[in-house]
Write a protein that binds this DNA or RNA. Structure first.
Length: 830
RNA sequence: GCCCAGGUGGCGAAAUUGGCAGACGCACCAGACUUAGGAUCUGGCGCCGUAAGGCUUGGAGGUUCAAGUCCUCUCCUGGGCACCA
């Protein structure tokens, strides 16, 4: 049989389809493995990134299957989202039909040719009512748990997409999708109280020992825990207090002002007490500014109010009372939205003080000997306190504790922890998403849709609905106008849809029990299959998706739905596939289309190539030069094996007595190589595994091409070894291996139903090994010794070696080191 | 500024606990077979050197019989976060 990739792969693909080879029986969970790659958005264009990520989950799935695990390797579609809607507007196609046809295209044309071992029985689609019904249920659960709320707040508004963005979707003040400058708008928004889980999300980062470290770092950055102190400054004029948050309570006696954010509630109070057009206009313009503008203006801005507030320890402070300022460098929704301005020891406060000529008080010095003087810049390190009343001469760390303690005692503050994580804004003013199951009744107010009425189905968008260039649920009157579930009076539905990150925050649970019509999933089954044993995806999802996924899992646990609190045991972050240093993109015209590569070189060649060389977790530059040589390797491997197997068709494969086998060297290569391959696959060193397959093949083909005088039983042994070899390399070259296995070892054979080859331990190590002899740390000779040589035996061989003799001649030997199986080092004088 | 990842031949890279640096592959070179080669096979291939030999894992120190690997300092590249108090 001659290798023809299209013929081989076509045949194997149709067999998989016919036999439903990759079905997972979730009831068999005592030895389970859940291998999951982040499901795709059905854009209609599969790219090399998809090939990489699904190949990784597939390799892992196939390997674990051979090792006797019941493997769940599902696939589905993250189908809601903007591109469908934009396509609808642009091409006048319904978002649902656009999505459906893309799914069809990707499933049957684009993601098919690799022979991935997906169990399509578990397929799901987040835009299908039988899925989003449960996304809506999840929303109602949040509501029940008091974890969902609607609040008027400043939200990130993308003027191009005409929608609110989550903080995670704002990159340096720009929309993550189209780069538009994000504006601030005051709107009523649905939020999930993810901040209630901030401490757990933070603490449990420690449990993620099998996560890619950079993914943990991204989360840590995002949640950002800060331990500090809330300090109250009383505002006597307004009979109120300003609470500031600081991590540096030790700098309390350097305060020259208190600065509040333009969003701070006290602003209104100040204005109503003493109206000031200047303050009003400053605040208004600051609020209008986008986050970028606020950040970009290098110079600090601010305005002094007529209000003063009192220092909590007036007796020791440089100023008993300081002015309250409004400054837009203070962030409204971080900490308390107010800071104490300590120019001497905070760079931002220093700039602010410089600009407005505020006094700089020096209260921390590096050490006692330090001569204080005019600070040229803020000293922000820890140090020793000065000019701080009774706290002078304390070290910063001690002072923070003591000052906090005393503030608490006086009722002027508290120790506190803040997180940078903000509540999750889950509403989107878009059509193609999961409708929020909420009804607004004039009489009863905000009424959740009763569970029995779920799903709240998304109406079908007709061409006429798309004419004004925007799709919005508000346009669908039949949808909007409904009856109140309580009083049955006229009412209106919520027209926002849910952030698609909510859809994808629980899909991994649903895969396990995707046909359940009574519940989102059966807790017992999910408990037996999760956490996910191997989750693959890009680092770009480490912040948003992964944090929501963890949050929802913890929420489910608190609701008694699952018994674990982290969803992912092992998170593998695959690198990016670039082209010429740039991310592949349609606009750059540098997209390499996987289907074309598969047509030319074959699925095995592509798979083998993408796993080779560059470790899967590192970014790579796509280069199709190397793929041809992979195809040639596969062809050579296939044809040589096939030629040999044709000549021994009549011989029954039988391992037999290996000690009698003629080619003993092959046995060492094969069993040694297979056991290393096993370890590499276990440790996710896929590029090394590819190299190992090359070595195994080189050694096997060399043997096959030099065979002579083999007995029938030798051939039987060799044939059985080839079968073992095929099963193992089938993890990396499934088509080739499956074809040869079926052709020469029985049509009923299937890689996926095989088991990892039995090793023969006698061939894992050799009797004689070669070790290096160093003299003064430099390699001078290589000697052959018996594996278990004693020190004396090994040294005797070493000292007998010509090169060793030459090097130590006439020198004094100071020390002899023998590390069994590793090395000999002889230390000589001079 | 903070956090993370990385730096090894012409290239992608490999190297259990510190123990023969460069596995495997690409590219290249030489040869064989061929009408032909973008096919196949054989051999070579870190750098300097005719050789003997010397040098070599971004750089500088250190620990050690022994360092790509451990410690201290430092430079560079990629990525994330960022007026977060």
């Amino acid at each position: 049989m001659n290798y023809d990739h299209q013929q081989v792969e076509g045949k194997i693909l149709s067999e998989h389809k016919k036999n439903n080879d990759f079905f997972c029986d979730v009831s068999k969970s005592n030895k389970k493995f859940y291998s999951l790659a982040m499901f795709p958005y059905p854009s209609g264009n599969a790219h090399m990134g998809h090939v990489l990520v699904y190949t990784l989950s597939d390799v892992k799935a196939r390997f674990k299957k051979l090792k006797g695990f019941e493997v769940l390797h599902p696939m589905g579609w993250d189908a809601f989202g903007l591109p469908a809607e934009n396509a609808a507007i642009k091409h006048k196609v319904r978002p649902d039909s656009w999505t459906k046809s893309n799914i069809h295209k990707m499933k049957n044309e684009q993601l098919n040719g690799e022979g991935w071992s997906f169990d399509w029985d578990k397929e799901l689609n987040t835009s299908s009512p039988d899925y989003y019904r449960w996304t809506q249920w999840l929303f109602l659960e949040m509501l029940k748990a008091n974890m969902a709320y609607k609040k008027a707040g400043y939200v990130n508004w993308c003027p191009i997409d005409q929608t609110v963005l989550a903080n995670e979707q704002v990159i340096n003040g720009h929309c993550y999708r189209d780069g538009a400058v994000v504006e601030k708008r005051l709107m009523d928004q649905w939020f999930f109280k993810i901040t209630a889980y901030a401490p757990k999300l933070w603490d449990d980062l420690e449990k993620l020992i099998h996560w890619a470290p950079e993914a943990v770092a991204v989360q840590r950055n995002w949640i950002n825990k800060n331990i500090g102190t809330n300090i109250d400054f009383s505002v006597n004029d307004l009979n109120d207090t300003i609470r500031v948050f600081t991590t540096r309570a030790d700098t309390l006696f350097g305060v020259c002002a208190v600065v509040i954010a333009p969003e701070h509630p006290l602003v209104a109070k100040i204005l109503s007490k003493s109206p000031s057009p200047e303050i009003k206009s400053y605040v208004e313009s600051a609020l209008k500014k986008s986050q970028v503008e606020r950040m970009q203006s290098k110079e600090k801005t601010g305005i002094k109010t007529s209000v003063k507030c009192q220092h909590p320890f007036p007796e020791f402070a440089p100023e008993k009372e300081v002015s309250v300022w409004i400054g837009d460098y203070v962030i409204g929704d971080y900490g308390t939205g107010a800071v104490m301005c300590v120019p001497g020891h905070d760079t931002r406060d220093f700039e602010f003080a410089q600009k407005f000529k505020l006094p700089v008080y020096e209260v921390i010095v590096p050490n006692k000997e330090y001569a204080q003087g005019n600070l040229k810049e803020a000293y922000t390190e820890f140090g020793t306190l000065i000019n701080s009343g009774p706290y002078s001469e304390l070290r910063s760390q001690t002072a923070i504790e003591k000052i906090t303690h005393d503030l608490v005692k006086k009722g002027h503050g508290e120790a506190t922890t803040t997180f940078q994580l903000r509540d999750w804004s889950v509403g989107r003013q878009r059509f193609w998403g999961c409708p929020i199951p909420i009804i607004y009744c004039q009489k009863c107010g905000t009424v959740p849709v009763p569970e029995k009425d779920l799903p709240v189905e998304l109406p079908i968008a007709r061409d006429s609905d798309m004419e004004d260039g925007v799709l919005n649920l508000r346009q669908f009157h039949d949808f909007v106008h409904t009856k109140c579930p309580h009083c049955h009076g006229p009412a209106k539905r919520e027209t926002d849809t849910l952030d698609t990150f909510l859809c994808s925050s629980w899909y991994a649970f649903r895969f396990i029990d995707n046909k359940n019509t009574k519940r989102p999933f059966d807790s017992n089954v999910v408990n037996s299959w999760m956490p996910i044993d191997f989750y693959v995806g890009g680092l770009e999802h480490a912040a948003q998706h992964m944090i929501y996924f963890r949050f929802i899992t913890k929420f489910f646990k608190d609701r008694g739905l699952v018994n674990f609190d982290e969803p992912v045991e092992y998170f593998f972050c695959n690198g990016m596939v670039r082209q010429g240093g740039a991310k592949m993109s349609k606009s750059k015209g540098n997209v390499v289309v996987p289907t074309e590569i598969i047509n030319t070189y074959g699925g095995d060649a592509l798979r083998f190539y993408i796993l080779s060389d560059t470790p899967a977790e590192l970014d790579r530059d796509w280069d199709d030069k190397g793929i041809k040589s992979k195809q040639e390797f596969i062809k050579k491997n296939f044809n040589n094996l096939s030629n040999y197997l044709d000549t021994v068709k009549h011989i029954i494969p039988q391992r037999g007595d290996l000690l009698k086998f003629k080619h003993q060297e092959l046995l060492f290569d094969l069993f040694g190589g297979l056991s290393q391959l096993e370890e590499q696959l276990e440790k996710n060193l896929f590029n090394n595994a590819v190299a190992k397959v090359h070595e195994l093949s080189n050694s096997l083909l060399k043997t096959i091409n030099t065979l002579k005088d083999l007995t029938e039983s030798d051939h039987g042994t060799l044939k059985s070894l080839i079968a073992d070899y095929l099963v193992a390399i089938g993890i990396l070259l499934p088509f080739t291996a499956e074809m040869l296995l079926k052709e020469y070892f029985g049509q009923e054979r299937s890689l996926y139903k095989s088991t990892w080859p039995m090793m023969d331990n006698r061939y894992l190590t050799r009797d004689f090994i070669s070790i290096a002899v160093q003299i003064n740390g430099k390699k001078r000779a290589l000697i052959e010794i018996k594996k278990n040589s004693s020190e004396a035996e090994a040294l005797a061989v070493a000292f007998n070696d010509v090169d060793v003799k030459k090097n130590i001649e006439g020198k004094e030997v100071l020390k002899k080191i023998y590390v069994p199986g590793k090395i000999i080092n002889i230390v000589i004088k001079g």
